[in-house]
Design a binder for these strands. Structure first.
Lengths: 125, 125
DNA sequence: TATGTTATTAGCTAAATAGCTAAGTAATAT
DNA sequence: ATATTACTTAGCTATTTAGCTAATAACATA
């Protein structure tokens, strides 16, 4: 279960447009790292990308992108793994799953409470 | 469907601890506004609270709380309604429902894509 | 060993944010 | 009419953030 501090970190990580887009593309596999060219045998999830590959898609410097990725990592919505020279980035599906569950629980509890209080089963305008 | 701008506003609204706690308490009905004492006939959702009632629970000034509530309103995760002197605040369940669905879709799509790519049906460590 | 590649860290600046107090508005109560 | 209540707006300051360049680190390769 995500505690408040963890949730705050996630919201902070996602409140910036650049980080949001990095997250989006890491998550949807928008641009896969061209690892195969020189290292065809490397065992990396083919969905993974790496820092410089992400940076190619933004008009920001590599250090800026690197810092953003660090923040996404600290919010635990991505994972990073160093292999040789490169840092491979993958979405952290577990955290997103937990977040989805948190919001769903909020909605479900709200509906149940309303039913308890008003005695109806559907929200009516 | 929430667009990116809308999502960014929501994450921005929730990335601050004070706003997060206001949201939490408005949402869970933590402190209901004592509207009944003087205006027992007023037709307001009994879950609703008002600005000064929220402010009582924080060591911040009323203007600070008022500004936070404004930001939560602009992110559309609460609604506000002026009745007489007071401003009644309620959670905006529709937005939260949509957000829950967004995250759930992300998780589902991720799982489906993995299945398509790797040909398995469960994620394995 | 020297050179190139990939990424991080340090240190800087401009802009945004979160808090405050004081002043203003609008409705209610006296 | 005046005072009070509930809230917002304006204007201020300290802190944080997001970007940059330059320097450094870690690894790969010629």
């Amino acid at each position: 279960m995500l505690d408040m501090e963890q949730k705050l970190k996630i919201f902070k990580a996602l409140n910036n447009q650049t980080r949001f887009l990095i997250f989006k593309n890491v998550f949807t596999g928008g641009y896969t790292c061209s690892l195969d060219k020189k290292q065809p045998g490397v065992e990396v999830n083919p969905i993974a990308t790496c820092v410089s590959t992400v940076a190619e898609h933004f008009n920001f410097s590599l250090p800026t992108i690197s810092n953003h990725i660090k923040e996404l990592k600290e919010a635990k919505i991505i994972t990073v793994e160093k292999k040789g020279n490169k840092v491979y980035i993958e979405p952290n599906i577990d955290t997103i799953r937990e977040l989805a569950e948190c919001f769903q629980t909020l909605v479900t509890n709200f509906d149940n409470n309303r039913e308890l209080f008003f005695g109806d089963t559907l929200s009516v305008k």
